[in-house]
Structures are given as structure tokens and as C-alpha cells.
Design a protein around this nucleic acid. Sequence first.
DNA 1: GACATTTTAGGACGATTGTCCTAGTGAATT
DNA 2: AATTCACTAGGACAATCGTCCTAAAATGTC
Lengths: 190, 190
Amino acid sequence: MADGTTRDHIVKAADELFYRQGYEHTSFAHIADAVGISRGNFYHHFKTKDDILGAVIVERLANTREMLAQWESSNEHPFDRIRAFIHILIANRTEIMRHGCPVGTLCAELAKLEHASQAAANELFTLFRGWLGRQFTLLGREAEADALAMHLLASSQGVATLANTFRDTAFVEREVERMGAWLAAEVPQH
Amino acid sequence: MADGTTRDHIVKAADELFYRQGYEHTSFAHIADAVGISRGNFYHHFKTKDDILGAVIVERLANTREMLAQWESSNEHPFDRIRAFIHILIANRTEIMRHGCPVGTLCAELAKLEHASQAAANELFTLFRGWLGRQFTLLGREAEADALAMHLLASSQGVATLANTFRDTAFVEREVERMGAWLAAEVPQH
DNA sequence: GACATTTTAGGACGATTGTCCTAGTGAATT
DNA sequence: AATTCACTAGGACAATCGTCCTAAAATGTC
């Protein structure tokens, strides 16, 4: 993961391009141009395009795990941690309005392609699902923790999809506020 | 739209394939195999692949308009019409779990491709948005009608995305019930 | 300084892409 | 019966795809 090696440049460029234009629509030529290397050089670092996707997913999983672990190890209240998750929609709204949610759009594309890395990409969702579930458990909602986590995930996915379609900042802010109100209503004892 | 002509067979087959495997991943060869005609025959009916996509979107728009007009002309209560919209998630859950929402996934893909037909596809969402907004207006929520419509659209999109990822029927049913409860709470005077 | 290994550039490869041309079929019209 | 026209099949076309080979350059090791 150390920044500087050619391999890391490839993964980073592929990560961005897969997000912005989709996996299938991104060719070796696109990535090569972005990194500034020749096409033939790929084979030395990755045997196939699928391998690049695999490396991108591994990196995204690592980054997500690190982010969630950092949130979890902080001494913030679980309620505020969940609010931080919701706030991703605000922090990344420009990118989300342009290209949708990086997780949701990747999983949707790989599902259509019936791609072998589907399960690996879905694991990104599972990370958030498990993390959110743990926070709800800490808030005393253990019995429904997973259902609440899934509901919150679905809410943010829906907002991301429509934000991408209608490019409406006010809509995103309105829905984020609504999600905050929902959270406060579900966990009033915080 | 009359069923029987080769052109309609092409549009129908393309519609299904674009939904199941995505627009870009579907080639002329795929469609030709599905219809049972030769590849070279396409040019007589459609000049470009984009034209096929355009025809598919036109057909989807017409079908959607017809469905919504039928719902709107019925003497059902607007509350029950909205419940019918929510119930699409149940009626089509098998297909949605397999391939996601036809509208949401198409708009997401075209956004990544920066495709010229993006606006036309987004109009599909606008149809539902306007229709839902009118129902909420009829229910006396004129001031917030569009916001409520967008929220409901976002909810269904989120459910479709996660249903596609986790293929969990129970989750879909749970969220549909939740959406019904939300609707009843928003419009208690029905 | 001689050698071995890693990394690179450039291009060949077969397959597939969307597009387009041409010859020929069949039915309808005159 | 002759002519026209909508329709079809098959393949050519250049471009691009992912993959892979080879030779040179760069780097590290003794």
C-alpha cells in the first residue's frame, strides 16, 4: 500500500477510473494513460484486468476497515458515530452527485456482469452493515441492530442514487436531516 | 409497439438484456442471438446502438406512463395508489434481487458513461416523482408533496440496491412494511 | 566492474466491438 | 408478368479489447 511504487499507482488510478466511469468501461489504455506507463507493462504487475479489480477491492476494504476501526476506537458516543456515517453523504456529496456511491455502483455493476469479484465487493457493504449493527447494539437496540443497520444503509443508498440522477444538493441535505431525526427517534435515550 | 414486427422484437430483447446485463455489456451479437436475426440486419432498423437504447427508453417511458395513468384514473384512494407503488418492490422482488431496479441501474450506468440518453432515462424517475407528488397533493400535503415523493423514491431505490446485493427476501418485506408505516404516519387522515 | 534480477516499452496476437456495404429474397403494387 | 420496395443474410471494415511475448533499460548484488 506504500505510495510510490508503480503497482500502487496502477491501483490508485484504476480505483478512481472504476468509480468515475465504471469497471467494464475502463480499459487498460485508460489506466495506462492515467498512470503514464505503457500498456504492455501491466502484465508484470497484474496478470489480468480482474486482478486489478481484485486489488482495488482489497484496497477499498482495507481503507474502509481502517476508517471504521478509527471511528470505533474513538471515545465518541455510538450515537455520534452513526451521525458521522450519515454525514458521509454531506462530506462526499459532490462526488456522489457526479458518480453515485462508490460501493453501491460497483456492486450493482458487478452483479450485472455476474463477475467473480461480486462477493468481495459485497463485503464492503457487509463491513458497514456490521459496524452499524454494533453501534446500535451499544445503543441498547441489540435485538433489531442488524435491521436498523440495513435500513440506514438502504436510506443512504437511495439518497446516493437519486442525488446522482437529479444532482440536487438541497435534496441530499434534506434527507440527511431526516435520517438524523429518524436516528434520534429510534435511539431517544442517548 | 405492436408485437410481431422485427423492430419490436429487437427493442424487447434489448430491453431485457440491457436490464439483465447492462447496456454497455450487451452487444449486437447478444441481441441478434436473442431475436434470431443476423447482425447485419440491424442497420435497416437502427442506425446505431445508441438508437436502440433510445427506442428502449421510449418504450419504457410509454409503459410507465400508461401504468401510472391507469393507477391515477382508477377510483382508488391516493393512499392506496401509493401503497401500490410501494408494493412494486414485493411484486418484482425476484427480478430486483437478481438485477436491481430497472430504472435506477440504467440511470446509474448511463451517468458513468456520460451517455447522451442520460436525460431521457432520468425522465423515468421524473415520471414516478411527479406521479407520487400528485398523490401526496391529493392527500393534502401539497406543500411537501415533492419532498415526500423524493423520499419515497429514495427509499425504494435503497431497498432495491441492498436487495440486489444481499438477496434477502425478508429484508425487502421488512422495509416495505416500514414504508407502509411511514406513509400511514405521514398521511394519518386517510 | 561483472553479473543477475526487476522493471519497462513497444508491439504482436486473436477475438470482439459497432458500423456499414452489397447481394439477394420475398411480397406487394402496377 | 414486370417492377418496385421493404427486408434480410453474410461478411468486410477499422478500431479497440484483454492478453502475452520479447528485448532493452534500470536497478541491485557480489
